[in-house]
């Protein structure tokens, strides 16, 4: 290989992309930095920084951020379990079973992905109120099942060979066991992608929990974050501690499962 010489334009480009990356990160660095100060103004000097978790403690214990954290974790875990189980079951039924009218139903499901959230918000609010499910975890978890999960899982079900399922059936492997011991392990990568997609959707969901779970002990993180910021306009350190906590969990997942994470989010937006 000949050694390539770098043109000055490419060097300028590298610098510009680097500057852009720094600008992407800057608000988050600022967020973490302010969360470690106890200044009442924003004119923060380096000497105001201290390695104290006081702001975090204050937000979690004194401002009920801990409750919101717990609620968010329950909702996220519940949503991921429900979406994974319901979607992979449905995808298996759609792909491998001779259910009459299934293709028409599947097309109908796909059409629902074009519907903006605001359109179904009011009727959902009315129904959940009528059912007496306001201020429950179910109100946040049950609506998480959607067409995207079924669509994603079905694409992976195609690759599960029918011969394998038939052979297992001949060997006397029952219906449930075929699904749990043959199908599920084969579609595991898709389950991870779907889990990350659902995690993000549930963790960041704001408008629906804002209107449906109004009691303070049922608030999830984004709603608590919003209230915290409105009620303590000058306690910047604590507000930024709250924002950092909200960011921390997805960030840790991103560090460890970067490829799946990007996939989960990118596929979710593109939706096929």
């Amino acid at each position: 290989m000949k050694k390539k010489h770098v043109s000055p334009w490419v060097a300028v480009g590298v610098v510009l992309v680097t500057v852009f990356a720094v600008l992407c990160l800057l608000p988050l660095i600022y967020m973490v930095a302010v969360s470690f100060t106890d200044s009442e103004t924003l004119y923060i000097k380096l000497k105001d920084l201290r390695p104290s978790l006081y702001n975090y403690w204050y937000a979690i214990v004194k401002r009920d951020f801990g409750t919101a954290l717990k609620n968010s974790i329950i909702v996220v875990v519940g949503s991921c379990l429900l979406v994974n189980v319901a979607s992979s079951m449905a995808a298996y039924g759609f792909e491998k079973k001779p259910v009459p009218g299934k293709e028409a139903l599947f097309q109908g499901y796909l059409a629902t992905m074009m519907i903006p959230g605001q359109v179904i918000l009011i009727p959902m609010f009315v129904m959940i109120n009528r059912a007496g499910l306001t201020n429950t975890y179910s109100a946040l978890i049950l609506p998480m099942v959607g067409a995207f999960g079924i669509f994603l899982m079905r694409q992976f079900m195609v690759a599960v060979p029918n011969e394998l399922l038939e052979a297992a059936e001949i060997d006397g492997c029952g219906e449930m066991r075929r699904f749990t011991t043959i199908v599920i392990p084969l579609v595991q990568p898709a389950l991870i992608t779907l889990t990350i997609f659902t995690f993000n959707a549930a963790w960041n969901n704001f408008l629906w929990p804002l209107i449906i779970n109004t009691r303070s002990e049922m608030r999830v993180l984004p709603v608590a974050m919003s209230t915290l910021a409105s009620n303590s306009t000058t306690n910047y350190g604590m507000v930024m501690a709250g924002a950092t906590l909200t960011f921390l969990f997805p960030f840790i997942l991103y560090i460890f499962l970067q490829r799946q994470f990007v996939e989960g989010i990118a596929l979710g937006g593109v939706k096929g």
């Binding site: 992407c24 608000p27 988050l28 967020m31 993000n200 963790w203 960041n204 704001f206 993180l221 984004p222 709603v223 974050m225 919003s226 924002a243 909200t246 960011f247 997805p250 960030f251 991103y254 994470f261 989010i265």
Partner: peptide
């Protein structure tokens, strides 16, 4: 920035 929630 994509993974930061809109509210944060």
């Amino acid at each position: 920035p994509v993974i930061v929630s809109l509210i944060a």
